[in-house]
Amino acid sequence: MRDEQLFALQRREQLMDRLRLHGAVRVRALAADLGVSELTIRRDIALLADRGLLTRVHGGATLPVESDRPPARRRPSTPAFTIGMVVPSLDFYWPLVISGARAAAAAHGVNLQLRGSSYDQAEDRRQILRLVESGQVQGLLLAPDLSGPDVDEMIGWIGKLVVPTIFVERQTPPWTPTPQQLEWVRSDHAVGLEMAVRHLHSVGHRRLGLVLRKDSPTSAHLITGWVRACAELDLCDDFVIRENVASQVPGYRETVGGILEQCRRSGITALIVHSDPDAISVAQYLTEQGARIPDDMALVSYDDEIAHLAHPAITAVRPPKGLVGRTAVELMVARLIEGRRRPAQRALILPELVIRESSVAFPGRPPVPSAH
Results as ranks from 00 to 15, higher is better:
residue 2 R to F: 14
residue 197 V to S: 09
residue 63 L to T: 05
residue 49 A to T: 11
residue 124 D to I: 13
residue 154 M to P: 07
residue 369 P to I: 11
residue 127 Q to C: 14
residue 72 A to L: 06
residue 242 R to K: 04
residue 357 E to Q: 15
residue 360 V to M: 01
residue 361 A to P: 15
residue 100 G to I: 06
residue 199 H to Y: 07
residue 117 S to V: 00
residue 216 S to V: 03
residue 157 W to Q: 13
residue 252 Y to S: 02
residue 271 L to P: 04
residue 223 I to P: 03
residue 73 R to F: 08
residue 193 L to H: 11
residue 157 W to M: 12
residue 364 G to D: 09
residue 303 D to K: 04
residue 72 A to Q: 01
residue 369 P to R: 08
residue 341 R to G: 11
residue 348 L to A: 07
residue 222 L to I: 07
residue 314 I to W: 02
residue 162 V to A: 14
residue 219 S to N: 09
residue 273 V to L: 05
residue 342 R to H: 02
residue 26 R to D: 04
residue 88 P to K: 10
residue 340 R to I: 07
residue 116 G to E: 14
residue 90 L to A: 05
residue 47 L to G: 12
residue 226 W to C: 02
residue 118 S to W: 09
residue 343 P to Q: 11
residue 24 A to S: 15
residue 245 V to E: 07
residue 281 S to L: 06
residue 330 E to Q: 14
residue 52 G to E: 10
residue 25 V to G: 00
residue 241 I to S: 02
residue 312 P to Q: 05
residue 193 L to N: 12
residue 101 A to P: 06
residue 152 D to A: 15
residue 51 R to T: 08
residue 199 H to T: 09
residue 248 Q to I: 09
residue 63 L to E: 07
residue 155 I to C: 11
residue 14 Q to V: 04
residue 326 R to V: 00
residue 186 R to L: 15
residue 8 A to F: 03
residue 83 I to V: 15
residue 294 P to V: 07
residue 235 L to F: 14
residue 17 D to Q: 12
residue 246 A to G: 15
residue 177 P to T: 00
residue 243 E to T: 06
residue 103 A to W: 05
residue 214 K to Y: 03
residue 278 D to C: 13
residue 303 D to A: 12
residue 131 L to I: 01
residue 238 D to E: 14
residue 320 P to L: 04
residue 207 R to A: 15
residue 53 L to K: 13
residue 93 Y to M: 12
